[in-house]
Design a protein around this nucleic acid. Structure first.
Length: 1071
RNA sequence: GGCCGCAUAGCUCAGUUGGCUAGAGCACAGUCUUCACACGACUGGGGUCACAGGUUCAAGUCCUGUUGCGGCCACCA
């Protein structure tokens, strides 16, 4: 037993230096993983030094973890995501890069708050508002601590080599300071504004929610056809005025319009009604209860009825509000009319089937109506309170006779409206209808389009969205480059942002091209509270002067006195709006509050802080304020690659690029092109589904818990399996089955990983036992000149595999990486090399060196994928230190005796030996034919047989004779045929006839029919193949147009096949 | 509705710029409890490359269309 030549026998290692013989036959991951993790953590190996990069000593490699939400434990998708990251991180660390993997978690605003609200409701029977804001936030904080610990534990169990010393949380003090700096700068630069807009409102949580926080669900409902009576002004020149009172136009009572009058105006169909009856239009709606908020009826200008209605108005029943009839293309024509007008496309519209041609316009409660309202300058009447009950306190003033609906829930109000209309003969008909309705993810409540004050980031500014697109490498941009046309605002490419696979660049690009301003306010308690104070200013001149001083000092910034708002009917009072650079600046805050300004209660969208992740985690904007961050930003931003799932390309990737470019582009410390992108590569991996192609989810019960797999199969097995499955496909199916022992969800897929790790373990066990017996050896480097062909073949395979692995890592081809190592370990090393050298290795020091190097290269190449088992083996590699081999460099550990910090293997291309590989292949094929024959005669594996063949075959085998003898259990390879009296099997190989004798103890080895079957099958196969080549060659175009090299190849191949067929047929004839 | 993908063995997936008899793992069948590994070894069966056209000497690969499936975006009176 000898110590590692390059390091002292550290106390941590000798405990593991037991004899190889003591190693158990089966690798039991749980016996090793915790100990190995402890060693890794103790080593500090995951903690890079920024100084090594900034001083030019080492190149950086950095990855920012997509911070998991603190709402739940990690699932298999996270396991894939983090495995892919750890593979890259570990490989680059071994390659000598100064490597940072920045870990952390996301506070996940709405999701976390909703979880805690649910929990508090269940456990304590209380609601959020039963607590103070501080008390409730403290509850959420405790919940977060709990899940953060779970998540960190999971990542560690997976073997993730994150820099745990630097673990961040999007709401820790360091990240908070970045958020406020960013907000302040955007505010100062006019890129943040407040506006009244329709948002997705969750009436249960009483907050705005983003589209991605909603889901669609089909709901069975109805189309209600409601009659709105038509009226007209008492005299010409009177105009509609908003909320002017019941039944009034321009202050005077509106006059009813009869069908007779409509008929005179040429209104189609008017004559079918009694001439004296009140005329009406019928609107079709799925939301009768919003009619209180109607401010117009819209009709398509192409509708033949539109002209007759010009100058007329509709009156809302009960409410009495008189509303105009506007003409807008948006309105869908009823099917019959569309067909008559020859608008066949429009007639096919599903809505045409249900349309009446008249649309009730409710700008405050429908996004399209809102847009339509803006076009026609319609008033916006909000009829609901934040809890979605009908209310006259939020913008609705002309209640009329509709007071009975106040305070009712949406659903109840709907029933009442229907009933009232029906009672008055105003409900024309009701048709059943099914359509999808937006629900809030977190509360499951139906989302209400709701008009409210919200904060926006003006991402439509070219400095943000267009700059993000310009960051794409030129060959991944489809617009602003081609057809000589430059898309509006599209700047030429100036960045190196690259998506892998490339197709995802399009999602990213088109998102920015169609982007809308980003609503960043959420009416929650859990998050970064908006650092803005506003209201009417009541301070004196001194206060005003101090305010100006603070602004000059950069401690606050005031926007133009009236908040930007483009919706009608915004309050016109002069509102002062001030943003603090640091809301913890008590002097400034106190001043503002003394002057009557009030801090905005809203918090920021979670993605605002996520967007700053590659900066905030590195200490931006002020590394000095948070020890340990000095130089990090300069060293590790831009990072190397972002690994993520496609669903957050727009939510997260996009925003990180915009913010990173914007903020770091401003800082003079960063030169042009430096520090402007948060990362250069974006790796978009597949989404894991179950065996039926469904998403894994708690409700379906088809989720697989990574910790269960680690417990049953081991971390390495899980990682290997996931890596092997990681191809460029968009979805990844993982058949789910209950583990028969644990009863937990698992997948048979992971068995492959477990088997692979066990194979490696046993290969190592065997190798170590051989080398242990042989003892240490020293001396000058082994050169290929003193090696046999088998060894040169092995070295060639090692060189080839190393090259494949390097290429796969570079191009993020994880499955190729896994396959390359699988073939190297299992096929080349175990199946052939180990078997081949068994007879000779004990006596050959040179061969022992090759064996030792092969194992060590294999574990080094595999370490990024399977870190635990390789580390466990590496702990014993001091046993296998031998003479070095020329052309192979295996650098030692830099920090302690750890494979994790050992150098990536260098196997020079010069060790590739194509002649040896071709020759070895010949031996493998011959072995395969022999074993095939053995199998068809049911020869017991241990039984030695004799191969009889022509001299040519023996000559061709040369040095590889022993290989075939071992692999096929031959006792001899002899020239010429076996004695006539000795029963033998015939086999055909390389156009030669060979015989195997000694197949059985006595009598003939089965009858001739087995022989005949085998040979006939061979002939048939070869004949078919020859036929294909023959057809190709006899095609006149082939010889003319195909490359000569291919034609020659085909000819040679055909000749070979024909010779083999002839030989086999000859053997066949003799039977 | 717009855009992006996918369809290859029972299952999960490879298959580079068209070019040797379309591959792997798992599963399946047979043999073997051989002194590294039964989480193993050897051997075998299994595919009209979704369908229909087209380009080409040559198509799983390129083009057009069809069918089925998935995703993103928009819409949903």
């Amino acid at each position: 037993m000898s110590a590692h030549p390059e390091s002292s026998p550290a106390a941590t290692t000798h405990a593991f230096q037991s004899s190889a013989n003591e190693l158990p036959k089966t690798y039991v991951p749980l016996d090793y993983e915790p100990k190995i993790r402890a060693k890794w953590e103790a080593s500090g190996a995951w903690h890079p030094e920024a100084g090594h990069v900034t001083s030019g000593k080492a190149k950086p490699f950095a990855i920012f973890i997509p911070p998991p939400n603190v709402t739940a434990a990690l699932h298999l998708g996270h396991a894939l995501n983090n495995t892919l990251q750890d593979v890259l991180v570990r490989a680059h660390r071994m390659m000598g890069f100064e490597t940072l993997w920045m870990p952390g978690t996301d506070h996940a605003g709405i999701a976390t708050q909703a979880m805690v609200e649910k929990r508090v409701q269940k456990d304590e029977g209380k609601r959020r508002k039963d607590f103070t804001r501080e008390a409730f936030v403290a509850k959420i904080q405790a919940f977060k601590d709990e899940y953060e610990a779970t998540i960190t534990g999971q990542l560690k169990a997976m073997g993730c080599s994150c820099d745990w010393d630097r673990q961040r949380f999007t709401m820790d003090p360091q990240c908070i300071s970045a958020v406020y700096e960013a907000f302040y700068r955007l505010f100062r630069d006019g890129l943040i504004y407040r506006g009244k807009r329709l948002v997705n409102w969750d009436p249960a949580l009483q907050t705005a929610v983003a589209d991605d926080e909603c889901y669609e669900e089909d709901v069975d409902t109805s189309f209600w056809y409601m009659k709105y009576p038509l009226v007209q002004p008492a005299r010409a020149g009177l105009h509609f005025q908003a909320l002017s009172g019941k039944g009034l136009i321009g202050g005077e009572p509106a006059l009813p319009v009869t069908w007779g009058e409509l008929a005179r105006r040429g209104y189609e169909g008017a004559e079918t009604h009694p001439a004296d009856d009140q005329a009406y239009v019928t609107v079709a709606t799925t939301r009768p209860e919003t009619y209180f908020g109607d401010t117009a009826v819209a009709v398509n200008p192409h509708d033949p009825r539109a002209g007759a209605l010009r100058g007329l108005f509709a009156e809302l029943p009960l409410v009495g509000r008189v509303i105009p009839i506007v003409e807008d293309d948006y309105v869908v024509l009823p099917k019959a009319i569309a067909e008559r007008l020859g608008k066949l496309e429009e007639a096919k519209d599903a809505k045409a089937e249900f349309a009446s041609g008249f649309l009730k316009v409710t700008p405050a409660h429908d996004t399209n109506d809102y847009e339509l309202g803006l076009r026609h300058k319609l008033p916006v009447v909000n009829i609901m309170a934040p809890d979605a009950t009908i209310s006259d306190k939020h913008g609705w003033t002309d209640i009329g006779d509709a007071a009975m609906f106040l305070g009712k829930k949406r659903e109840e109000a709907r029933k009442m409206v229907v009933k009232e209309f029906d009672a008055r003969g105003l409900m024309e008909k009701i048709r059943p209808y099914k359509h999808s309705v937006k629900h809030s993810d977190r509360s499951k409540a139906i989302v209400e389009p709701y008009l409210s004050d919200q904060w926006y980031v003006k991402v439509t500014d070219p400095k943000l969205a267009a700059a993000a697109n310009a960051a794409l490498v030129a060959d991944q941009r489809t617009h602003g480059q081609h057809n000589g046309h430059t898309a509006h605002g599209a700047a030429p490419s100036d960045g190196k942002l690259r998506f892998v696979p490339a197709r995802y660049a399009k999602i990213y690009e088109s998102w920015h091209e169609n982007i809308r301003d980003w609503c960043i306010s959420r009416q929650l308690w859990w998050g970064h509270q908006i650092p803005v104070w506003s209201g009417k200013f009541s301070g004196d001149a001194a206060a005003e002067a101090r305010l100006q001083q603070l602004q000059s000092a950069g401690r606050l910034h005031e926007s133009a006195p009236v908040a930007v708002a483009d919706a009608p009917h915004t309050e016109s009072a002069v509102i002062r709006t001030v943003c603090l650079n640091n809301p913890g600046d008590t002097e400034a805050a106190t001043l503002l509050e003394a002057c009557g300004l009030v801090r905005d209660a809203d918090v920021l969208d979670t993605w605002f802080s996520s967007a700053l992740w590659p900066m905030s985690t590195l200490g931006w904007p002020n590394a000095a304020a948070f020890p340990g961050n000095e130089g990090l930003l300069e060293a590790f931003n831009p990072s190397s690659v972002l690994c993520t799932a496609r669903e957050i390309i727009t939510l997260w990737v996009s925003r990180m690029v915009m913010f990173n470019r914007y903020f770091l582009g401003q800082d003079s410390t960063f030169g042009p092109g430096r520090g402007r992108l948060p990362f250069t590569d974006v790796l978009v991996h597949a989404v894991i589904q179950d065996g039926e192609g469904r998403k894994m989810s708690k409700s379906l019960g088809n989720g697989v818990d990574p910790l269960d797999i680690i417990a049953s199969h081991g971390s390495d097995a899980m990682r290997y399996t996931l890596a092997a499955m990681a191809t460029q496909t968009q979805d990844l199916r993982m058949p789910v089955a209950k583990d028969s022992k644990t009863g937990k969800n698992s997948s048979p897929k992971f068995d492959a990983g477990r088997n692979f790790c066990n194979k490696l373990w046993n290969a190592a066990r065997f190798t170590l036992s051989i080398l242990e017996k042989a003892g240490p050896s020293t001396g000058a480097p082994v050169t290929t000149a003193e090696l046999g062909e088998v060894d040169r073949w092995m070295l060639s395979r090692l060189a080839a595999a190393t090259e494949s692995v390097n290429a796969a890592i570079k191009s993020y081809e994880y499955a190729d990486y896994a396959t390359a190592t699988y073939d190297l370990l299992w096929r080349d090393f175990c199946d052939w090399y180990l078997e081949s050298i068994k007879p000779t290795v004990g006596a050959s020091a040179a061969q022992q060196a090759v064996l030792a190097h092969a194992l060590e290269i294999i574990i080094r190449l595999l370490h990024p994928i399977a870190p635990f088992v390789t580390e466990a083996i590496y702990e014993r590699t001091s046993l296998l230190r031998t003479r070095p081999i020329a052309g192979i460099t295996l650098g030692g550990s830099r920090k302690g005796e750890l494979l994790a910090t050992a150098a990536w293997p260098v196997v020079e291309g010069a060790l590739r030996d194509t002649a040896a590989e071709a020759h070895f292949k010949f031996a493998q094929e011959l072995s395969s034919v022999i074993n095939n024959t053995r199998a068809s005669y049911n020869v017991p594996p241990k039984r030695k047989v004799t191969l009889h063949g022509p001299q040519a075959i023996a000559d061709q085998l040369g040095d590889l004779r022993p290989v075939v003898m071992v692999m096929c259990q031959l006792d001899a390879i002899t020239r010429g045929p076996p004695p006539a009296d000795k029963p033998a099997a015939t086999l055909s190989f390389a156009a030669s006839e060979l015989k195997l004798s000694n197949l059985a103890d006595e009598a003939a080895p089965a009858d001739a029919s087995t022989e005949r079957d085998r040979l006939s099958k061979l002939v048939a196969e070869k004949t078919k193949a020859a036929g294909i080549i023959d057809t190709r060659l006899s095609n006149p175009g082939y010889a003319d147009k195909a490359p000569a090299k291919l034609v020659d190849q085909s000819k040679a191949e055909l000749a070979k096949l024909r010779a083999e067929i002839a030989a086999a047929q000859e053997s066949l004839a003799k039977l």
